[in-house]
Simulated scan of single mutants.
Amino acid sequence: MKRLGILSVFLLLLWSCGTPKIAKVERQWYKGNLHTHSYWSDGDEFPEMIMGWYKDHGYDFIGLSDHNTLAAGEKWKLVPKGGVYKDAFYTYLKKYGEDWVEYKEDTGRVSVKLKTFQEYVPLFAEKDKFLIIQSEEITNSFEGKPLHLNVTNVKKLIGEQEGSSVSDVLQKSIDAVTAQRRATGQPMIIHINHPNFYFAITVDDMISLNGERFFEVFNGHPMVNNYGDSTHIGMEEMWDRINIAYLAAGKPLMYGVATDDSHNYHMFGDAYSNSGRGWVMVQADSLRPASLIEAMEAGDFYGSTGVTLSRISREGNKLRVEVAAEEGVAYTIQFIGVKKGEEMSSVLMEKKGIADEFALTEDIVFVRAKVVSDKYKENPFKEGDFEAAWTQPMVYQ
């Protein structure tokens, strides 16, 4: 018995010393744009040139989301008239060469065979460095109203949906993505694009939806009316009204994304839809679609037009924000939320500086942070815009 006891102790020590410790995965911030267009639909550039721009400008992931297409099969693009487009074609040809670019000329016009998603991805994808996610802008309409939604990490084409109302069309798009996700087991998310594009989607349309967790609080296209007008509310007020209604109905919070919705790559200014205006920063454990989507569904991301946050902490009932400050730039941190019994959001606390926190109490429905700098945005959505960032809302626990 004594010998058995000594052996047992020895084996226990051996097991405890030999068991590898599971290292905690350090989550990182990844920068990405989820809304981008190319010659596969109504953008004015080749996919390779667009992917190269985002990779060269420090993005970690990109979703090329052309209208009702997945960049598959054979498509020839007639290069548009105008010297800028012809020059852009020769730039493309020089960069990638005759062996890569398949084209033909006829009566002075050039047609180019577009590269598919499967063809161009290997040129740019690098494990843990740069990821291209297959995406689609589901492009619908109802009574002339444009109803667009982006699906990220889609596996099969969704395509246009039809319905009996604005909300019915949107819901059918959401349901189609949900069904594909369940059938394939592939994680994917859907977000509503630019509700104020032709003022097509109202707060009431959004409130009635089920299964929608994301929408564009900022979109870089010049025609989307991010800030509303004299008779329509802007995206931030819409966001807060949706969440007031969602929480009252027992639905999960709606999260806000910032995107480029880029179409124009040769002409620049606030009359054009250019790259680099809005993006998301996602805090995930790896640069994989599943990891990024899991983090976004948990609210572990923020939207930005230029402000970088070094830390967002949601511990207990405290929301803390810390800014990765640029030298010579001043910041204002606003905590925006809704108190119980009120129908509108307001700035609950505001402070100039690079770090602050807000403690939720039972009388607050939800709170989110917005950080605004005094640095003017380069090539802004609207002249005079300052760089900003938006965290996701949180509720009292």
Rank of each mutant, 00 (worst) to 15 (best):
M223K: 13
A295E: 05
D42W: 04
V282Q: 12
H35V: 06
L157R: 13
R109D: 12
T184D: 10
R213V: 05
L149N: 11
S141N: 13
K172Y: 13
F214H: 01
N317Y: 10
E98M: 07
E326T: 02
H57I: 09
G108Q: 03
G276K: 06
R213I: 11
E119L: 06
G58N: 13
G303I: 07
F366W: 09
V9C: 08
G97F: 04
I336E: 03
G276Q: 05
F130P: 10
G341M: 05
W40F: 10
G73H: 00
V121T: 12
L64M: 14
I201T: 12
R368E: 04
G328W: 04
T391E: 05
K55M: 12
Y92E: 08
K2R: 13
F61N: 00
E48Y: 07
I364W: 05
M206E: 09
D356L: 02
S16M: 09
S310T: 09
T152N: 12
W15Q: 04
N153Q: 07
M238R: 01
F268K: 04
D106Y: 14
K31N: 06
L7R: 07
K377F: 02
T391I: 07
L14V: 14
G144M: 13
L253F: 08
A248Y: 06
P187N: 10
S286W: 01
D60A: 11
K2Q: 14
T152P: 04
S111E: 08
V203G: 12
K55R: 13
H148I: 05
S8P: 00
L70T: 11
T152Q: 09
E294S: 15
K156Y: 15
V371N: 11
A248E: 12
V321A: 05
T116V: 13
E126R: 12
S8K: 04
M349L: 08
G5P: 02
G18E: 09
P380K: 02
Y30F: 15
L131G: 01
H232G: 09
D385H: 11
G97E: 04
F197N: 07
F301W: 03
G73K: 01
A284D: 00
I244K: 06
G316Q: 10
Q392W: 03
K75M: 08
E48M: 10
Y331Q: 01
N68C: 08
L209T: 13
K115Y: 09
A72P: 03
L292K: 00
L123Y: 13
A183S: 15
E343W: 03
V110I: 15
D60R: 12
